[in-house]
Design a protein around this nucleic acid. Structure first.
Lengths: 198, 198
DNA sequence: CCTTTCACCATACGATCATATGATAAAAAT
DNA sequence: ATTTTTATCATATGATCGTATGGTGAAAGG
């Protein structure tokens, strides 16, 4: 056998090339040839790791999801140890916004893959499941933050997440600057959770 | 000359075929051949009305926008004559949500074209302009509805529009039913504008 | 040592794409 | 009546696509 290589590392590398292309020129510009060129590989090698283009896109979607989860985790971990649930909540939501070029690219590719998923019931179900998980996490945080009406916590969570999603679009479009988007988010958070947690 | 035909009507017919395909199978499945087949025309005839595929997509984006404006107008016009600004506001926002199969298709294609626009600065500027217009319209309605803090009306408008946008995504995904989405929207409207207008 | 395994490559194949070209027929313009 | 214009069509062209195929060289296993 030859040098024995880390398959998953190679796939991630290819996946990264894919989404550099997708972020810069759109998902429609993603082809095996373009990806291979961007990754500095031969087409055959890309085929060796992804038998079909769809596999490549599916892997990229999973990869993207891991990155976003990691960003959320780091955003929460960066909080001072004494930070209450309200700060945690804010850390989670801001981690979902495309506030810098890196996360902008991720969001861009994420939205493109999202639309693609809508035409495929199976993939759509995965997205729905992830979205439902987010809702329950935010609901828990709201309850912990002493949300005024615990019975309405889930409704408030849905509102927050939909708002965050909409702000992400506005950021992508350039309708909002990062500062403006945060202003909108914070203003709404102020309405919804007590300013100083017990 | 032959029968002299309404060019714009023909273009709209082609555009409709395009977006039936895009809604059902994604923008990536839209090709001159597919559109021609769906519209029941020859490829050559489609070319006669749209010299390039990009023209076809650009026209479809304008067409879509007109339809959405028309939906908003009708939604407002359907209100009882005595309806106050708060009802008008709600009519505008719900008209932007994909609550039935027809508007679902429109939203689906709209989002796909939106992402495409992000890779083209000129088109993105058009979308930004439209989005800004929405903001000022909603801001006016909020002020008219006796929004508690007039100075914050614009901030509230941005919140409402981002929320609506996020709810649209949730509806497309099937995370929310129409009734659930309206519950979220109404709950937020209750927080933000006085229940009974003067 | 030799055989198997695996990373990697070059190229071929058939399909599909956007677009170009040239023809036909009918109706308006002259 | 003839010319011009325009709607419509069939087909060609050259590029690009996803994927299949047949290799090569190196390293591990026997």
């Amino acid at each position: 056998m030859p040098k024995q290589v880390d398959h998953d590392e190679r796939r991630r590398r290819i996946s990264l090339a894919l989404w550099r292309i997708a972020a810069a020129r759109g998902l429609e510009s993603v082809s095996m040839r373009e990806v291979a060129a961007e990754a500095g590989m031969s087409i055959g090698l890309v085929q060796h790791y992804f038998a079909a283009k769809d596999d490549m896109l599916a892997f990229t979607a999973r990869h993207l999801r891991e990155r976003i989860e990691e960003r959320v985790r780091q955003s929460v971990a960066a909080l001072p140890r004494a930070a209450g649930p309200r700060h945690t909540l804010r850390a989670v939501l801001t981690a979902l916004l495309p506030l810098d070029p890196g996360s902008r690219d991720e969001t861009l590719v994420g939205v493109a893959l999202f639309i693609r998923a809508l035409n495929d019931p199976g993939t759509a179900a995965l997205y729905r499941h992830g979205r439902a998980g987010l809702t329950s996490a935010v609901t828990r945080l709201l309850r912990a933050a002493g949300h005024v009406a615990p019975a309405e916590a889930e409704l408030t969570a849905e509102t927050l997440l939909a708002l965050t999603d909409g702000l992400a679009s506005d950021l992508l479009l350039g309708h909002h600057s990062p500062a403006q988007a945060l202003r909108v988010l914070d203003h709404h958070l102020d309405m919804v959770v007590p300013a100083s947690p017990v």
